[in-house]
Design a protein around this nucleic acid. Sequence first.
DNA 1: GAGTTTGAAACT
DNA 2: CAGTTTCAAACTC
Length: 737
Amino acid sequence: MDVVSPDLNSLLPDEIMDTEAIEDIPHSHPDSTSVQSEPNDDTPVPMETDTPMASENLSLCSNVTSTEPTQLPMSISTTSSSLLTLKPGMATSIATTKTTDSLTGTSISTSGLQKLTAPFAISAANHQIILNKVASSQATEAAKSAGTQPQVIKQEGQKLLVTAIGKSGQPIVLQLPHTGSKPGISQMSGDPKSQAPQFKVVTIGGRSELKPAMGSAGNQMTTLQAQQLKTLQIAKKTPTSSAAPIKFIITKTVNSKGLSPQTTVSPVIAGRALTQNSPVMPPRTITLSESLNTSIQSISGKKIAISPLKTPSKNIKQVQSVAVSGVAGSQFKTIIPLTSQPNVQQIQVPGSRFHYVRLVTATTASSAGQPSGPSTSSLQTAKPMVVSTGAVRMSVPIVPAQTIKQMAPKPLTSAAVVTTTQTQQRLIMPATPLPQIQPNFTNLPPGTVLAPAPGGGNVGYAVVPAQYVTQLQQTPFVTLASSSGFPASTAIQTQARLPLNGLSTAEATSRPRKPCNCTKSQCLKLYCDCFANGEFCNNCNCNNCFNNLEHETERLKAIKTCLERNPEAFKPKIGKGKEGESDRRHSKGCNCKRSGCLKNYCECYEAKIMCSSICKCVGCKNFEESPERKTLMHLADAAEVRVQQQTAAKTKLSSQISDLLMRTTPVISSGGGRMPYTFVTKEVLEATCECLLEQAKKAEQPQVEAERMILEEFGHCLMRIISSAGKAKADCASINC
DNA sequence: GAGTTTGAAACT
DNA sequence: CAGTTTCAAACTC
C-alpha cells in the first residue's frame, strides 16, 4: 500500500504548515539509502502511513543538485512528465509504518496498513527519501549502530518527510533538492530566497486502498474541516507494477466548500490531512519547491524528542525531527491556523472536547537567540504558506488535560515555552490517536508544556485546550508572543490574518463561556470556571489572574495540584450516557441541600439533567416526576417560546417597515411625493394605537395570543398607511399631470 | 449594583 | 472520610 507520510505534509506550509526545518542530512553519507543517524540523541521519527487516494497521474520532479547554492526547488508538477525519483524494487510490501520513540521505546504502528518492513531512509547526500525501503537493513543497522533508531529524520536541512506509501515492493524515494545549507546557519536570516515548500498535504497511492480501518468514526472529516484543508495528493495510478515507475499527481484542493458530504477524506495524520478526495474540486497542480536554505537549523545536532510517553522535564531532548503519528487513528485532526495568534495553530479534533494548538517557533537566528532582524521580515510578506524555512517542526500529540501525574512540570517554565527568543514554537497534534502513545498523553492537563526546550531550546510544546485557541483568536495580543523575546513577526503574522476554520475572525472569536470574576483564587483553582474548563482567562473580570501563559509555571503547578487531588478534575462533569443524551448524568452527583436541585446552584439542574442515584442532594426535586420540576420546565419553556415569538415578531415588523421605506423611497426620489414618515401623522398614530388597544382588549388571555393579535393589527395599520400613502402619491401625480 | 444564598472546591 | 472554610456563581432586592 502506498502511503505518503504525513510528514510530507509538513512540507506543506500554507497557513497550516509552517516551514519546518528537518534535520540537515550530512553530506558525508553519500549513500542515498542509508538512514541518517544522529550521533547524539536521536529520536526516531515516527512515520505515518496512509492509504493513497488519488488515482491520477502524478509526476514529481525534483531537481537534485549537490551543492548548488541557488535555490533548487523540488517540484511536483502534474504538467511535467518527469517522474519523481523513485527506486522501486528495493522494498517489499510496506504498509504500516512502525515507529519507535527513542525516549520511551514505544513503538508506534499504523494500523490498517501494510506493515512497514523497513524504515524509510533519508539520505542527505543525494537528498533522497526512501519511503519503503525494504532492503535498507544495512542502513538500519548502521543507524542502530550509531545509537539511533531507524526512521530518524534529522532536523538540519531536511525539508521533506514522507512516509512510505509505496505499493508492495515499491520503494518510494523522494529526491530532495540539495539544500546546500549547513546546520547552524540560519536560513531565517533574511534570505528572501528561503522558501518553504508550497504544499501541504500529500497522498501517495491509490484511493482504492483506503481502508475503513484507517478511519474509524473519528476519521470522518466534516465539511467545514474539509474546507480548511488544502490537500495535496500524490496519487499512485499504477501500483501494480513494482518495477514500473510510479507516477504521481499532486492535487491541491483549496477550500473546497463544494465538498459533498460523501466526500471521502482521509484522516489527517500528524495533524495533517493526508488525502482528500473531492469529486468537486478538480485537482490542481502545485509545485513543491524547496529552498536551499530551508534546512538550516540554529540548533544543530540537537533534537527535541517529542515523546508523548515521556515526561518532558527529564526526558525530552532537543530533537528537531519528531513526527509521531499512527495512520489508523480513529480521529483525524485538522490544523487550522490561528487568525490572531501567529505562533499558534489550531488543530481540531472532532469529538474532542479540546482543541489543540501547536506553537510554532520560527528559528530566527542560527545560534544565540539573535533577535531576528529586518531580514526576517521577508517571511512576513509573500505567501502565508511559507512560514519559516528554518522553523523547527515537530508533531506532538496533545491531549486534553486529564491527569498530570506523569508530567513533570517543574522544569517546564513559561520561559521555556514563551520566552524562547531563538525560535518559534510549534505545537503539532498528530492526526491519529496513536494508541501506543496517547494513553500517556491523556494525562496531560491543558496548558501543559511538553518540551521546555532547556538551555534555550528551540521548541516547546504546550498542551492548550480548545478554548485557548479561541482565546488566542480573540486576543490580538497574546501573552505567548508578548512574553517571548522573539518577534511575533514573519509568517506568523501572516497566519494571524488567515481565517480560522472557514470563519471570519469575528465569527471564530465568539466566546461561549462567561468571563470569570475570580478575586482570590488567582484563577488557578477549580472555583474558576475558566481554569476548570481548561481555558486561559481572557476578557475576564478576574483579579490577580494567573491563568495565563505569563504565569504558565504557576498554572502548571496548579493543574498538577488539582490533578493530584482529583485525576479527573478536568474531565467533563456531565458524562454522556451510553444511550445518548438522555442518559447524561453528573459524574459525581450534586450535594445540594437547600435549593431543591431546582436552581442553577445545582450542577445537575444547571446542566439540564436530572439528579441521579449518585447525587447526595437533600430534598431533591430534580427528578422526572417532580411537579415542581415540571412546573419550572413548563415556565421555562413558555418563557423561551415567548422570547422567540417576540423576536420573530420584531423581526417581521422590522422587515415590514424596512420594506415600506424601500417602497416609498421612489416617491422621495421622484421629488413630487411626500416623505414616507409624513404619512404617519398624529392622527394616524392615534388611530393605530386605538386599533392595537382594541386588539389587546379582545385578546385578553393568553398573553402570547394578545401579542400576536396586536402585532397583526399593527401590520394591518401599516398596510393601510402604505396604501394611503400610495393613493396620495397617485393623486398628487394626477394633479400634476 | 450591593448584598445574600448556595454548593462545589479546598482545606483541616 | 467528615467537618469546616473558602470561593465564586447564582440569586434577590
